[in-house]
Design a protein around this nucleic acid. Sequence first.
DNA 1: ATTGTAATTGCAACTGTTTTGCATTAAATT
DNA 2: AATTTAATGCAAAACAGTTGCAATTACAAT
Lengths: 126, 126
Amino acid sequence: MGVVRTTKTVRLVTQFFDTYEHAIGVLDLVEKFKEEMNRSTIYRILDRLEDEGKVHSFLGANGLKHYAKCKDCNHKEHVDVHPHFQCTNCGMVECVAYEIKIPALPDKSVEQAQLLLTGICANCKD
Amino acid sequence: MGVVRTTKTVRLVTQFFDTYEHAIGVLDLVEKFKEEMNRSTIYRILDRLEDEGKVHSFLGANGLKHYAKCKDCNHKEHVDVHPHFQCTNCGMVECVAYEIKIPALPDKSVEQAQLLLTGICANCKD
DNA sequence: ATTGTAATTGCAACTGTTTTGCATTAAATT
DNA sequence: AATTTAATGCAAAACAGTTGCAATTACAAT
C-alpha cells in the first residue's frame, strides 16, 4: 500500500471539498455520492483524506462524524483546536475561526480538545 | 404519561449515580445492569433521568453517549457548560470543574457548548 | 501501446448500537 | 382488592460503520 492512486472517486470527493465551505456529515456525503460510489468507498476515502491531512473530522451534535477541508491544519497535528458550530434548525455545520485555549488540568496531560457549539445560524435567525 | 413511577429499575440506576463520581458510557451501564434489566430499559431510564435534570449527557471521544449526575445543573438549561475529560488510555471520563466562556459569534446565537478534552489521566500518567 | 502489479472498489454479509411495537408486569390510586 | 396505565422485557427492526474477497483499474515497467 505504498503508492497512492488518484482514482475517479477520490477526485470527486477531493473536488467536492475544494469548493465546499462548510463541514458535512458522513451520511450526507454517502447520500450525495450514492450514484457515483459505494458507501464503503466513501468511508475509506474520508479516512485517507484525513490521514493525509487534507480534511479534518469532528463529531457533530448527534455523534456523527463530520468533515471539512483543512485550511491551516498540518499533518502532524490534524487535531481540531478550533470550535465548530452546528445549527440546530437547519443542521448546517461550519468551522469557527477562533482558537480555544485549553485549560491546564492538574495531574492530567490534555492532548486534544473538541469544542462544539450549537445554536441558530445567521440564515435561520432572520 | 402524567404520573412518573419509581420502579425498582429506576431506583437502581438512580442509586448508582448517587455514588458514582465519574461519567459513564451507555454501554458500560448496559453491561453493569445486564442482570437487573433489559437494554432498552436502560436507554429509556437514562432518557428520563436526563429529561428530569438528574443526570446530564455528552458525547465521548468515540461518539458514544456518556452520563454523569448533575451537580449544579438545573432543569431549564441542562446544558453542559463545563468540559469533560476522557483518558485515551483507560477510558475514564469525568466532568471538569471549570467553566468555559463561550465565544460570541457574529450573527449566530449559541445556545449550547460541548467541550471534550482528551489525554492521559493522573492514574495512567504514573 | 501492452502488460503486470497491487491499490482501490463494489458487493454483500456482518458487527455493534439504538429504537420500536406490543404483550406483560407492576406501581400507584381508588 | 380492584383498577388504571406507566414501565418493562423481548424480539425484531433500524441505523451506522466495517470487513473479506473477488473484480476492477491506476500506473509503472516493458
